[in-house]
Write a protein that binds this DNA or RNA. Structure first.
Length: 560
DNA sequence: CCGTTGCAGACTCATGCTCA
DNA sequence: TGAGCATGAGTCTGCAACGG
């Protein structure tokens, strides 16, 4: 393999691990933190071998870990902004769709010619020891590399470029008529460099991963007896035997050799250059959706609920919120529609989605009282952003939680923290690795969702009251192939209850995407008034039905 | 009650398909 | 025929259903 693919298989750095806490310990200023972290990411990116991983470990930093995680994630994914001259990049179509949806976007269309590339977000592990929480962010580098790779079957370079199975990964087709491999349609072997490397590792016993490690790390919430297990896991699952691993950490006590990999500990010189922070804040990417929407016309809003404690409006969240008073709500909790996750939540691309979210949360901000909390339940869903390509090759883990955090901070909210909603052993204990115990095949089970905590201005509630993690099974939706609940994505009562533990009983709360009105119904139990908004008539009916059931149950209960 | 069977559901990979 | 898109097979395991 090395003989035939000499250039591409030389592995400079097979994995880069960035342990942030020790590096930025003394820095108090958030902008300075960003400067240091961004410079390190960029330097890591250019040293990292293609198709290899960058892991970033974050514990507790000033002022808030989750704010930093959000900025890091968006930066990693989007920091390379330049024209992409591949024909799969159909920027005209992206521009067309976005301009049609976002009316006030009279920006120069030329901007859409620039695409964003960078590292692909794979996962965020939560690692716990006693009560301490560390986050491990994982990114994969897939840089377009058009250098020809010989056919793994017949070693010839008589090949032709083919498609991109995932963005940034070039695939090839063998054109040698004497090659041992031919498909039914008489086409040659198709392959890519990254798949060749991965498949080679399967056969190599030195790359075998201890199944014990995999068992402990099969979910993305992990309980460890020592945080050094993070390194054991990362090194075994995301690098190959004989690789050189680059580690950025100030006080590193790791041996120079682990599992046959050479560790290179890098001293960090404090880099003071605002270059990358400025670059980040000036990305054209943000300018395509951070645009204020103007209200079209006053739509009639009718309260569908007959109970004084609950207000239920059917209609577009933005329109209805625009008509509400400013500074009078005591809190808000919601689970926004996940981008293109269901047939009731479809947008042409991520810009359109983020534009809607920006405008709706902007209105929520206006309606909230100073100091009041906002909780947002969101999941990093798996889909295509549809801003580079439209097919499956663009499908990836979306960074919705990071986007929402960015948007809300842009509006003016304080991002105070994050509650991890551990959904438990959903879908069994599956760990998709195609039966291979070798690196790069280990995909954990994504078993937690974000509940982001924000406040308007300085919080008037006690932040320390909020737990770091809650365990709650998702509501059973499907019984014998039928959706007995009526809504495909309900959230548990615990989520709105978290909000009610922060506010006083005389407040009015808001849920701009209420669905089956879990928020309103739980609020009623707490004796708190609520305003609920839902776009679809169908869900409003469902909400009222569920409310009716709840009330009749309470009535029965009071008889005893 | 317990062993067996088969399916759900999420994801990847390889290959078929199709357009220009 | 170059290049991108679509899709079905294959992979996993817990659990429900089944049957002795």
């Amino acid at each position: 393999m090395k003989y035939f693919h000499d250039v591409q298989t030389s592995r400079k750095k097979g994995l880069v691990i960035l342990s942030i806490d020790s590096i930025i310990q003394e820095i108090k200023n958030y902008d300075e933190i960003l400067e240091v972290v961004f410079s390190l990411i960029v330097s890591a990116y250019f040293q990292l071998t293609n198709h290899c991983y960058l892991a970033i470990i974050v514990e507790q930093v000033h002022p808030n870990k989750w704010q930093l995680i959000s900025d890091i994630t968006i930066f990693c994914e989007k920091f390379l902004e330049h024209p992409i001259d591949r024909s799969y990049f159909r920027w005209r179509k992206v521009a067309e769709e976005t301009l049609e949806y976002i009316e006030n976007l009279n920006d120069n269309v030329y901007n859409f010619k620039h695409g964003n590339e960078g590292l692909t977000y794979k996962d965020c592990y939560l690692v716990y020891k006693n009560n301490r929480e560390k986050c491990v962010l994982l990114f994969e580098k897939n840089e377009r590399d058009e250098r020809p790779v010989p056919c793994p079957q017949c070693r010839t370079l008589k090949i032709q470029g083919h498609s991109y199975p995932t963005i940034g990964v070039r695939s090839w087709e063998c054109k040698n008529i004497f090659c041992g491999y031919k498909s039914k349609y008489n086409r040659g072997k198709r392959y890519s460099l990254s798949s060749i490397i991965r498949q080679q590792a399967i056969l190599d016993s030195q790359n075998f991963i201890d199944p014990k490690i995999l068992k402990n790390w099969r979910r993305d919430i992990v309980e460890v007896s020592s945080f050094s297990e993070i390194y054991d896991f990362l090194i075994q699952c995301y690098s190959l035997y004989d690789d050189t691993i680059l580690i950025y950490e100030k006080l590193c006590q790791l041996p120079p050799l682990m599992f046959g990999r050479k560790l290179k500990i890098q001293k960090v010189n404090k880099l003071i250059s605002s270059q990358w922070r400025n670059h980040y804040h000036n990305l054209k990417f943000f300018k395509r959706f951070l645009i204020k929407k103007s209200m079209k016309s006053l739509t009639s809003r009718e309260n569908l609920s007959s109970i004084p404690e609950i207000t239920l409006y059917q209609g577009d969240s933005f329109n209805i919120l625009s008509q509400l008073e400013s500074n009078y709500l005591g809190g808000a909790v919601t689970s926004p529609p996940y981008y293109n996750a269901r047939n009731y939540s479809q947008w042409s691309n991520i810009y359109c989605y983020l534009y809607d979210m920006y405008n709706i949360f902007n209105q929520v901000y206006r309606c909230l009282k100073e100091g009041s909390p906002l909780l947002i339940n969101i999941f990093d869903y798996f889909d295509n952003e549809k801003i580079i390509v439209f097919s499956d090759m663009g499908k990836k883990r979306l960074i919705l939680s990071s986007y929402i955090s960015f948007i809300c901070r842009y509006i003016g909210f304080n991002h105070l923290g994050n509650i991890a909603w551990d959904k438990g052993e959903i879908e069994g204990n599956r760990n998709f690795n195609q039966g291979n115990y070798s690196p790069y095949y280990q995909a954990p089970h994504n078993c937690w969702e974000h509940i982001l905590i924000f406040s308007k201005g300085n919080p008037s509630f006690d932040v320390t009251k909020i737990p770091k993690i809650i365990k709650e099974k998702p509501i059973t939706k499907i019984v014998k192939g039928k959706n007995i609940y009526g809504h495909t994505a309900p959230f548990p009562e615990k989520v709105p209850s978290l909000l009610f533990s922060l506010i006083t009983k005389d407040e009015i709360i808001l849920d701009p995407f209420t669905g089956s009105m879990t928020t309103g119904r739980v609020a009623l139990k707490y004796g708190i008034k609520s305003i609920n908004i839902e776009l679809h008539k169908h869900y409003c009916d469902l909400a009222l039905n569920l409310l009716k059931q709840q009330l009749s149950k309470n009535l029965q209960g009071s008889l005893f």
